[in-house]
Write a protein that binds this DNA or RNA. Sequence first.
RNA 1: GGCCCUAUCGUCUAGCUGGUUAGGACACGGCCCUCUCAAGGCCGGAGCACGGGUUCGAGCCCCGUUAGGGCUACCA
Length: 451
Amino acid sequence: MSQVRVRFAPSPTGMLHIGGARTALFNWLYARHTGGKFVLRIEDTDQARNTQEAVDVIFRGMRWLGLDWDEGPDGKGGTSGDRGPYFQSQRGDIYRRYLEKLKATGKTYEDGGALKFKMPKTPGVVKDLVCGEVTFDRTMEPDLVIQRKDGSPVFHFVNVVDDLEMGITHVIRGEDHLTNTHKHIALYEALGAAPPQFGHIPLILNRGGSKMSKRDEGAALGFYEEAGYLPAAVRNYLCLLGWSPGENQEILPVPDLIQRFDLPNINRSNARFDGDKLFWMNGEYWRTLTDAEFQKFADEYLRRTRPKVAQMDPDLLKRLLPLIREKVRTGREMAEWLDPYLGEEYEYSAEAKKKQLGAPEAGKWLEALSSALGAMGTGWDDSTIEGACKKVAEEAGAKPAKVIHLARAAVSGRTVGPSLFGLLTALGKERVLQRLERTRRQMAEGTLVTA
RNA sequence: GGCCCUAUCGUCUAGCUGGUUAGGACACGGCCCUCUCAAGGCCGGAGCACGGGUUCGAGCCCCGUUAGGGCUACCA
């Protein structure tokens, strides 16, 4: 048996569709599982949408997911592999050659300026690796246009020619192509070539239950990168749509995924995309990152989404991040939680003002807190701060929680945040006193800003 | 309309060649922990679409119905 060659052939639409990403992933897994080659081919025949930016989106998405390809454009202007070109827009000569070859068989004819392929009227049989044997009655099947009036070849034709020329052995693609496959097979046969094997994988459905379209929320892979998801989590989650590793396991490292993945155990029914579960899974990966991995991720994500971090005291950031990390599970949440510490002009949320800072005893308690914390000598740490806070509460005859929540609101402007004692420790005494003072001043002046 | 695919908790799924108290995960509810929020622990509700067969026995096999999805372009 010769070496497996699979391909992913996206068209540059300006986004990498989540379904396309999953198709790429399954192809990649199959190539790695079998020790075969994974080819990337760009179907850039639609001139209107074909821009460099749109092509770059594909490269970026593939790299982000960790799907490396053995042949195709390298994304840096170069190419690897010797079965190119890997852009359809550069394969015109090849298509013309095959068009001539097909014409020579006498199985084509001109109609209305277009070139048509005479579809055989015999039953079309597709032996699908996922769906089994599917037979199509073609007695009523119309002939297939393979070249438009303007001379350009159509998708079905170039797709077949490319797969043939590139020596693709297994075509793994979405089930939406299943009913077209017999046409492709007819083309292979007319060209005197053996068709590849096919495996049609179930579609990814949106919440409403229809094929995920580019207009659906979260349909673009880039959406998850922007939201600060971890590529490993997204990749792992995508694996579970239409396939299961079995043995009640869902979270698996890549080598296990590769080892267990195979075509016969792919599901036949479509799967709905469940953002909640992805979110949960991201949390699982989020928690198992090493400190170094998390730091790298946080640096890159924050630099991109919160340019203000550059102005921030790096030591403060370094102290804050671990505290925030354990309370959230995506980069976006992390960034939002960091907002109150990006500068001293932080805002107070409506809830913080209403529930905490607006309380009758708030001013009195904050004053007590300021003096208690201000009086602390050496040893500014979680436990000494806790002691001071509890003492303030005790003297005020209140539960510690009351004072703690008030302090959080004063110091961060929020009602939720990292554990208070850790937060105060991280902020440092001077900054904490300054923030308490700022809050008291604004309370006194009645100018607590909202936005 | 025609053709094709599919059908296990709300969702993703396990369930190999018929014998299971139908398993797991997300989500959800309750309790515990608790300074908010997460995390964690314990408990719980929730499913074989329906109807016929075949069989001693069907979630698994066959047929039908229903439902969902897809395809049916000189789009890709």
